[in-house]
Computed example of a mutant assay.
Amino acid sequence: MIIPVLNITNVQLTQLDHETWCVTAQVSDLSSPVEMSNLWNDSYWLSAYLSSHMVFTEFRHFKWHYHAVQKPISKRSIAHRQRQQQRQGVRQLLQALLNKLEISDTLDESSFPYRLSKSKYYVCFSHTAAHNKDEFNKKSHQNIPAISYSKIAAVISRRRPAGIDIEHNDVAWHIVKRFYSDSEITILQTLPKNQRDYIAKLLWQIKESFIKIHQYTLAQGLGIDYSDVIPALTDDMNKDFITISHTNDQSNHQIAVLQADQTVVVF
């Protein structure tokens, strides 16, 4: 299997405090490499053109041309390819961050939360799909592999686990009503729809980040009440960068919202 060449662009590095850094980027698959072992299977056809004055049996004089016949790409294959792309991409992004900070270390993935092997810094990843649907449809019609895009993010923290979540899609209101706390839903219902959807998505990202920190189950983490941060999120929703303190019986954390990158970090 050939590992695809990834193109990481729009890299944004943010230092959240003297012990915490996060980085976001866009990753795309630049190639759809073909393994030579598959060259002779039914996915390809061979055409030969005989030069003039050559005898048919003199195969050394054939000019061979290989034409890839693109098979239809299933949604399952696309999803699998994108998961591989995201997994590879966040690790390349982490390495870029370590290089920038002049940290010589490797990732230990033997348990959660992830840590760096030597320094023991805490590491967390996030990614979200960002297909260009128009480009995908156009290229699919032409039997050309579509280039898929993902947004990826990583955070490292010296002193304790940090959580990060990057997300482009809104959270459906029926999902909010199913999982969010009564206090959160009550406040959200008082907001105009566009503001409600914006805050609901940020709450989802905050919940996801805390899930990664405390290793909650999904249902448990989504049900925790973070209604205390809604007023600050609402008041500052037009700012590019928001920081909020969140303190309860279980934790004392800072929440950072990077608007341009659609990323939330809890640290």
Rank of each mutant, 00 (worst) to 15 (best):
I144C: 12
Y122C: 09
I244S: 07
Y149R: 13
D197E: 13
H174M: 12
S148N: 13
I144F: 12
V155M: 07
K212S: 13
N252S: 14
K139F: 06
N132A: 09
S245T: 09
Q142E: 11
Q195N: 14
I244E: 08
H246Q: 10
D240A: 10
P231G: 03
K239R: 12
P161W: 02
Q205F: 00
H168D: 11
A200Q: 02
P192Q: 04
Q215V: 10
N137K: 10
L191G: 04
R160Y: 11
H131R: 12
F179N: 07
Y149N: 11
A162S: 15
F136N: 06
G163A: 08
K201T: 03
I175F: 05
R158W: 08
L218E: 01
E208F: 04
E167T: 02
C124H: 15
Y122G: 14
S245L: 07
D197M: 02
N194L: 12
R178C: 07
K177N: 13
N248L: 03
R160F: 07
N169F: 07
R178T: 15
Q254Y: 08
D182P: 10
K201D: 00
E167A: 06
K212C: 08
K177A: 02
V176T: 00
Q142M: 13
Q254M: 09
H127F: 10
L233A: 03
Q205T: 11
I185Y: 02
P145C: 07
I166S: 05
L233G: 01
I230Y: 04
I199P: 00
P161E: 11
D225R: 05
I185F: 01
C124Y: 03
H246A: 14
I206R: 00
K239Q: 10
A130H: 10
V155Q: 07
Y226A: 05
G221D: 03
G221Q: 05
K139W: 08
I187S: 04
I166N: 09
K151R: 12
D228E: 09
I175S: 06
N194W: 06
I211N: 03
Y226G: 03
Q142D: 08
K212Q: 10
A129N: 14
S126T: 01
A172R: 13
H127Y: 13
S245W: 02
H131I: 06
S150P: 03
D225K: 05
S157K: 08
H253N: 10
P231A: 05
I213H: 08
K207R: 12
Q220N: 14
L202N: 02
A219F: 11
Q250G: 06
F125V: 06
H141V: 08
T234F: 07
T247V: 15
F241V: 02
T186V: 09
F210Y: 12
I175W: 05
H253F: 02
Y180W: 04
K133V: 09
Y226T: 06
D225M: 02
R159M: 12
I244W: 00
I224S: 01
R159K: 14
D170M: 12
L233S: 06
M237R: 09
A146L: 01
L191S: 07
Q189D: 15
W204P: 00
S157L: 05
I230A: 05
Y180Q: 03
K239D: 09
L203H: 09
R178E: 14
E167L: 07
Q215C: 14
N132V: 02
P145V: 09
Q254P: 02
W204Q: 00
E208R: 00
I166V: 15
F179G: 02
K133W: 09
H141W: 07
